[in-house]
Design a binder for these strands. Structure first.
Length: 730
DNA sequence: GTAGGGTTAG
């Protein structure tokens, strides 16, 4: 008997000597056998259980206590937090306070973490009050946890309104990590005060609180610095973040992997690859360059600096890759326009058994949008739904965009309508979708609806609405929107907005006005702004202005292929063969070659490409066999080949043949002969659809009774029953 | 008690 009492005493004095579940249970049994299980000893056993993460055993014993001591409460609360049972941790804390027990500094870090994960700012603040009253705000761990809470719950976004903090809760939730899912009650306690409704602060709300806590902590450690640096970095206060990193250099606290991976995104944002490389070098010297966090930050930093090869190299040297490392490179490919590689890597990621999370989908779906591959886009959509990410606002916005860019505006609208909340990005995606499909009026009314619902349009939204106006010729409306940017929304017009207005004026035939507008822009016009006017000059057959405009283009960009081709076309259609020849000679001297026009169509899991005039396609005979009678029928119905756009200096008969071989016509024909009657044909083209093909496809849609959708590089054309959705305004 | 990747844009 006495020997077992000695044993108990030794174990109680050194509880860490108990390393296994069976040892803990033996100790518990000894207490029961010797009838010495007091409140204090029970608390010690509970703390031993919780240290071994034996929540169930701890709770069984805990429930037998009538008035549990602080040690028992603390252990249970910490264990709940460790197991991601945040709401139960908080409930226990509240209960402990109600029972009159006074918390000590050991319990606050867990409680604050639970408040953070539950996004319960109200409770967190009252805990803070309690901490101050107990004079525990000097405690290092408590202070660090407090800073983290304020940074997470108040510190996101550079300018944030209090009302918005609460609106964004579902998104913030996903950002806090997947462990939220493990709690029993995901519903955050939201006590939104009326007076907190929509006050916009110019400074992120939380960072001020973070700084106050930081200043109170008397002795700071590397975690304190990392927490406040991350807070500044994520609030867009980059200079303050970097200032603190430098300040660390004056102490004996040295930047570690956490510090670096908070700082690297700043240099991504600044596109400062020199500083980024310095950090990379520091990481190598410290021997932490293989860290997964640093690795993905480096991949991202190099990708954002257009050095995707360096991203690939960092990625290939990573010892371990998690889903974020993979996704950083997938996203990097997308950001650099390497869409096929993005899709390839995404596939590789999946075959490597790394489960793509929500972020991976919102990175890769835009690749489908750019490639206009409805087939892959639909597959990803299915994958998204199976993964349970259907209500993620980032993913939904990218799906809206994907469906509209792949030609299915109705599917885009359906997804948009099913979203619970719309932010400026999702609104912009659907508005741009209608704009590209030529439904300018619908786009404009959606823009108005967005404003009515209190969502402030950003600069991209203005690009979308101006594009919508431009595609249907809403000149007055466009001016209104253009001017409201500065007057109502405090947004500066940027190149894209000027370009959209210039495009609008040009399309509307107000060529001189467009010329003046571009000449007086407050931003230096680029070659592409002038190029849109040049194509308007071509559409409205104004050769004189076109020559002026092309000179402007060549003075900015002497190798602008599009301008050469358009000018050649215009000279050709005016019979000015000499000028055309001169221009072509210039092109040849510069070694410029015309980008081949090509079109592609997806059929049965395969993409079929057609290059203008290329007769090598294995189905060429069948295509011609199909086109011949259709062309004859077209001519009976009044089709006359418009050969004015044909560049080549050849006779009329030959020109007709050349038009015959245009890539979009081949792709449409191929689609029709390889699908069931009535199937919609979707064709994508790399440059603007040709004028004659536009007429021809209208006839083809009528004769074959097919809906034909052609996406060129600027918009969609829906051909149906002999007419096009653009109503020939393009 | 701390860190990394994401949606809309001629």
């Amino acid at each position: 008997m006495s020997s077992s009492k000695t044993l108990i005493r030794t174990l109680i004095q050194n509880p860490t000597r108990i390393k296994s579940k069976s040892q803990a249970k033996q100790l518990h049994a000894q207490f029961i056998r010797t009838q010495s299980l007091s409140h204090t000893s029970a608390s010690i056993v509970i703390s031993i259980y919780t240290n071994l993460k034996l929540l169930h055993e701890a709770l069984l014993l805990f429930k037998t206590l009538e008035s549990p001591p602080v040690l028992a409460w603390k252990s249970v609360i910490r264990c709940f937090t460790d197991q991601s049972l945040f709401s139960r941790a908080l409930a226990s804390f509240v209960e402990m306070r109600a029972s009159g027990r006074c918390p000590d500094h050991n319990v606050f870090p867990s409680v604050l973490k639970s408040c953070t994960m539950m996004m319960d700012l109200r409770l967190g603040e009252s805990v803070h009050g309690c901490i101050v009253r107990l004079g525990m705000d000097c405690d290092l761990y408590t202070g660090n946890a407090l800073m983290n809470m304020y940074a997470k719950l108040l510190g996101m976004g550079s300018k944030i309104s209090v009302g918005k903090v609460f609106d964004e809760m579902p998104q913030r939730m996903s950002r806090l990590g997947s462990c939220c899912v493990a709690t029993e009650s995901v519903e955050p306690v939201m006590n939104c005060d009326e007076d907190l409704e929509a006050e916009t602060c110019t400074m992120p709300l939380g960072i001020d609180s973070v700084r106050k806590v930081f200043e109170v902590i008397p002795r700071k450690d590397v975690v304190s610095y990392n927490t406040i640096i991350a807070g500044y970095a994520q609030s867009g206060m980059y200079e303050d973040a970097l200032r603190l990193v430098r300040e660390m250099g004056t102490t004996d606290i040295k930047p570690d992997a956490f510090t670096l991976s908070s700082v690297l995104p700043i240099f991504s944002e600044y596109v400062d690859v020199i500083k980024g490389k310095e950090i990379h070098g520091y990481a190598i010297r410290k021997g932490i360059d293989a860290d997964v966090y640093i690795g993905s930050s480096l991949v991202d930093m190099y990708a954002k600096s257009a050095r995707i090869e360096d991203s690939e190299r960092v990625f290939s040297h990573l010892a371990r890759r998690d889903s974020i490392s993979w996704n950083s490179l997938v996203a990097g490919y997308v950001q650099n326009g390497r869409y096929n590689e993005a899709l390839r890597l995404f596939r590789q990621m999946v075959t490597t058994k790394v489960r793509p999370g929500p972020v991976a989908f919102s990175s890769v779906i835009p690749a489908c949008a750019h490639l206009a591959t409805l087939r892959l886009g639909k597959q990803l959509h299915g994958y998204v739904l199976r993964g349970g990410f259907g209500s993620n606002i980032f993913i939904s916005s990218s799906l809206v965009d994907m469906y509209s860019k792949c030609g299915n505006i109705n599917a885009a609208r359906k997804i948009f309508d099913r979203m619970n909340v719309h932010d400026e990005v999702s609104w912009t995606a659907i508005i741009m979708g209608y704009a590209l499909h030529g439904h300018g009026h619908e786009a404009v009314s959606l823009f108005e609806e967005m404003k009515e619902q209190g969502v402030k349009p950003n600069k991209v939204a203005f690009v979308a609405v101006l594009t919508a106006c431009s595609h249907v010729g809403l000149v007055d409306e466009a001016w209104g929107y253009f001017n409201s940017m500065t007057k109502v929304y405090g947004l500066n017009q940027e190149l894209e907005h000027y370009a959209a207005v210039a495009d609008l004026l040009g399309r509307a035939g107000k060529l001189e006005e467009a010329y003046d507008f571009i000449s007086k822009m407050r931003v230096e016009p680029t070659g592409s702004v002038w190029s849109t006017l040049l194509s308007s000059c071509s559409v409205h057959k104004n050769l004189e202005l076109a020559e002026k405009v092309s000179e402007k283009i060549f003075s900015i960009d002497s190798e602008n292929m599009g301008a050469y081709v358009l000018m050649c076309n215009m000279y050709a259609s005016n019979g000015r063969w000499k000028e055309m020849a001169k221009l072509r000679l210039k092109m040849r001297k510069k070694g410029l070659r015309k980008k081949p026009a090509c079109s592609w169509i997806e059929l049965k899991n395969k993409t079929h490409g057609f290059v203008s005039g290329d007769r090598s396609h294995p189905n060429m005979d069948r295509i011609n066999e199909f086109l011949k009678p259709v062309m004859e029928q077209m001519e009976k119905e009044g089709y006359v080949a418009d050969t004015s756009g044909v560049l080549h200096d050849v006779d009329e008969e030959h020109k007709r043949e050349l038009l015959f071989g245009h890539s979009e016509r081949l792709a449409v024909a191929f689609g029709i002969i390889n699908t069931e009657p009535g199937t919609t044909i979707r064709v994508t083209k790399n440059i603007r659809i040709c004028r004659d093909c536009h007429v021809a496809i209208k006839f083809i849609s009528k004769i074959t009774e097919r809906e034909i959708i052609v996406r060129d590089n600027s918009r969609f054309h829906h051909f149906n029953r002999g007419s096009c959705s653009c109503l020939d305004y393009w």
